[in-house]
Structures are given as C-alpha cells and as structure tokens.
Design a protein around this nucleic acid. Structure first.
Lengths: 140, 140
DNA sequence: ATAAAGGCTCAAGTCGACTTGAAGTCAAGC
DNA sequence: GCTTGACTTCAAGTCGACTTGAGCCTTTAT
C-alpha cells in the first residue's frame, strides 16, 4: 500500500504516518522510487497505537510495549500496564457516575450534594495523574 | 488556607494553583496582603479537576462542565461527557484485556494471535481520538 | 517534453498544560 | 533596620505529539 492508502484506511494524515515511522512505531517495507510502501498489517498496528493512545499511553510507552528490542516482549511490563489501566478504569467509572448524577441532581452546587462528593471520594484514593486533551479525528 | 497549605493538601505545586486560578478553575477568596487565601473546599474542587484530567478532559472542558457561566449548569453537556466516558471505558477494557492476554500468550508476534486481534477489533469500532501522556505526581 | 499531482526531507511552528526565572513585596526574627 | 524566606507578577521556556512550510524529486497525463 502507498502512504495515502494507509492514510485513508486509518484515518490518520500522511504526516502522522511519517512521524510514527520516524519514531519506530510503524515500518514501511521498502520504497517504490522515493515513495514508501507499507504492508497491510500496518493498519492493525495503527489501530493498536490509537487504542493505546486513547488509553492514555504515550508514544514512547507504546513503543516500549509493542516493539520488542530484546529477544522477546516484556511480559511484566504488559501486566503492569494492564494494572495501571484497571486503576484508570475505576477513576473513569467514578467520574462517569459523578457526571451522570450531576446532570440530574437538583443541588445548585455539586459540592453541596453528598452523593456527588461521595462519588468523587471513591476516586480520590488514587495518586495524582495528568493525561491530556482529546482531539477528534474524522474518518474522512 | 494559604497557597502552600493547599499545595500540601492537594499534592499540586503552588505554580499550578496560580495557573488554575488564572484559568478560572479555582478561586481564591481574598488576600492577606499580597498572599492568596483559599477556602477549604478548593481541595475538593482540585480533586474534581484532577479526576477530570485523568478522565482525559482538557482544562477548558472541565471549566465548561463545572463553572456555570449561565444561570445553571449545562446538564446536557454533562450527560454527553458521561456518554463519552462510557465509550472510553470500553476501549480501556479492551486494551487492558489485550495487554493481559499478550502478557501470557505464547505467540511471538501479537499480530499472529487471533485472540489478541479480536480484542483489538472490539475497540476498533470507535472513532479515532488522541489523549496524551500520563505523568506521575508523588503525594510528598 | 512538460506541467501538474503528489511524495520526499528537514526545520520550524503550534497547542495544551505547566514550569522556571527574574525581579519585586512584605512580615518576622535578629 | 536589615536580612531572610515565602509569597507575588509576568514573560519566557519546556515537553509531547503532531502540523506546516519550503524546496526538491518523480511519476503520470497531455
């Protein structure tokens, strides 16, 4: 596949694909003249990267998880990341429940609503983290 | 409370608290000379902000959700954000299961493992998003 | 054979979320 | 009364993840 086909199939701009290749997250297998050629499985790999990003992992972390630099993959690392996700999932559930409650609750100020506060405190046990923005990317 | 007390209680550096105040995410209620004074409920508000961040919301989104600029809060917005979180949670669950499987699976390459691919595809139905880094912040 | 389309490289720019640094203020202790 | 240390402002810097722009090279259609 050439780069625009991959771009269309994945929804990512070509510039991002070049950037990911430079970072070692994907590989092109050879060139047609100047032009990169990709094998079809790059699409799956991009889906995985995208999923990892939406799970809050950085590109470096994703590379670490899925680009074995040693003889085999780091299973302990994968388990640790899975555990990390479990904690994040709990937080998101608390946040979602808090939002849903706040959308219905009659209290003017959520901070006066004991139910809301309790939902917050459930997630309050966690250590501090800071993920980032979410941008939308339309699929053409 | 003064700014260092808030910093200790929340685990956030004073610089971040000033930054959040400037953005309108928190308020100081008056000054003692030059120095900001905060009321105790700022701690809860910071917990909420922190939770929102870990749920992938930007500071602007959090402000939008929890700083009513009209007569009352935007309940539809809160529901929409809750729905957004539901989709994110599903993705994270798929990712977590994928990671856990990959940590055990004997296949050299995850892309050759049908179980792993199936887990990916579950989350593949979603549109593309891109959150960001997670940094750790120690609580002293 | 030439021009337009689209790929290429490489450097620089952008954006959100902070952080850092310089320079000033002020209350408290010696 | 002067230093010290914790606070203040404001501008500039940083970091990750891309995006954009300039200038160059090919392939393809005319």
């Amino acid at each position: 596949m050439d780069i625009t086909e991959v771009a269309k199939a994945s929804g990512l701009p070509a510039s991002t694909l070049r950037f990911y290749e430079e970072k070692g997250l994907i590989q092109s297998n050879g060139r047609n003249g100047l032009r990169r050629l990709f094998s079809a499985n790059v699409i799956e790999r991009l889906a995985l990267i995208s999923l990892g990003r939406s799970a809050g992992f950085s590109l470096d972390e994703i590379a670490e998880m899925f680009t074995p630099d040693g003889p085999d993959i780091n299973r302990a690392l994968l388990s640790a990341k899975a555990d990390e996700l479990d904690r994040t999932i709990e937080e998101l559930i608390a946040m979602r429940d808090g939002l849903r409650h706040a959308a219905l609750c009659k209290a003017l100020n959520h901070f006066e609503c004991p139910k809301f506060l309790r939902l917050l405190r459930v997630a309050g046990k966690n250590r501090f983290r800071q993920p980032n923005k979410l941008k939308e990317k339309k699929l053409k």
